[in-house]
């Protein structure tokens, strides 16, 4: 079945393996960067819906959702409006929801807390790894930093461990990062490190002219591309505007909407 594609899907080139019998989207790290003015949550919702929708050719995909930002009911309601029932998916075991709203790593044993969290993720991945696409979603990594009392080093180590899962089990990892936190120029390397790990960087920004009712912001998608094959998507930057609606998001090129 030919799925409707949007500019965002094109830019991500998650083309469901139609052109390629292998699963090209495997083992990617997607970094969603946003700021106070424009939340990048909608990209996350879009991707979750995409990975859980029943007519993806690989219907045996599983989403592992590590949520620090919002409770389950919030995501459930939003995705229901988009036509994806998270509660049902959770019962079908296609969605594994880790509610981390209250997670606190004890001061003296931050590392232990993160190791335990990674252990849970790894276990879940291993159990489900047989011939399935697994997507790990972390919303958002800045809150994980807060939960670990600011030991950025440990969070980075945690991310590197998660990154090993992409090669080992072919997991896709989606991370949300509030990029403007680190823009004050105090020599933060955290976002750079994450950008280095990432294969695709999606950045949401407000328009320079401010927020408007019909254009909610602009997306910049940097697709570092895959090394296998001779695909043309290598290192391509896509830039377009978007407007968020309850059940979908409109993506369009600047100026292409009257």
């Amino acid at each position: 079945m030919n799925r409707p594609t949007t500019l965002l899907d094109d830019a991500l080139s998650f083309d469901d393996g139609e052109s390629n019998s292998r699963r090209p989207q495997n083992g990617r790290v997607v970094l969603v960067e946003d700021c106070v003015e424009t939340s990048g949550a909608f990209v996350l919702h879009h991707l979750i819906k995409r990975f859980l929708s029943p007519n993806v050719s690989s219907s045996d995909s599983i989403v592992l959702f590590v949520a620090f930002a919002q409770p389950f009911s919030h995501y459930d309601r939003i995705l229901r409006k988009m036509g994806c029932n998270l509660a049902a998916q959770r019962e079908n075991k296609r969605l594994l929801f880790f509610d981390m709203l209250m997670l606190e790593c004890p001061d003296d044993d931050v590392e232990g807390g993160l190791i335990a969290l990674f252990g849970n993720i790894q276990k879940a991945v291993e159990v489900n790894s047989s011939n399935k696409n697994i997507t790990i979603v972390i919303d958002d990594i800045s809150l994980l930093e807060v939960a670990t009392n600011g030991s950025t080093k440990d969070v980075l180590n945690f991310m590197r461990y998660c990154h090993t899962l992409t090669t080992q089990f072919g997991c896709t990892i989606i991370i949300v990062l509030h990029e403007d936190i680190y823009s004050s120029g105090d020599g933060f390397t955290f976002p750079l490190q994450l950008e280095y790990l990432a294969d695709i960087i999606i950045k949401t920004e407000p328009l320079i002219t401010g927020l408007a009712a019909d254009v909610h912001g602009q997306l910049t998608v940097l697709n570092k591309g895959t090394l296998d094959g001779f695909r043309s998507s290598k290192g391509k930057i896509h830039n377009f505007h978007y407007k968020i609606k309850e059940n979908s998001v409109d993506y369009f090129y600047p100026g292409s909407r009257s």
Partner: peptide, 17 residues
């Protein structure tokens, strides 16, 4: 600067901030 967005992804765009 920001209006709460509960159970929705649509941002609230005000006439004036």
């Amino acid at each position: 600067h920001k209006v709460a967005r509960f159970n929705t992804q649509v941002p609230v765009i005000l006439d004036a901030t």
